[in-house]
């Protein structure tokens, strides 16, 4: 099992819709709107490291209104 945290920066104020779209992705277990220079923190729990890329790069980045993501894989 691989757990990762993805910080998501939006380019749209439509936070509800973006959070909803993130939560629908396979592998996403939590998604929160946060204050600060990133707009969402997303917890991903998947089988393989490659799946992290699938969720972050393909899934989240493809949502309209998402500008950038940073992914941190949990080590301990």
């Amino acid at each position: 099992m691989v757990v990762a945290y993805v910080m998501v920066k939006a380019a749209s104020g439509d936070a509800d819709r973006i959070r909803g779209a993130i939560r629908e992705l396979d592998g996403v277990v939590e998604a929160h709107i946060v204050a600060g220079d990133m707009d969402f923190v997303v917890k991903v729990d998947v089988d393989e490291p490659a799946d992290v890329k699938r969720v972050a790069a393909d899934g989240i980045q493809d949502i309209a209104g998402v500008e950038d993501t940073r992914t941190y894989i949990a080590m301990g």
């Binding site: 939006a10 380019a11 749209s12 104020g13 439509d14 936070a15 509800d16 709107i33 204050a35 220079d37 707009d39």
Partner: peptide, 12 residues
């Protein structure tokens, strides 16, 4: 720092 955030902060 960016205009789209106005909506997010107003709401949350």
């Amino acid at each position: 720092d960016e205009d789209y955030r106005e909506e997010i902060y107003q709401k949350y």
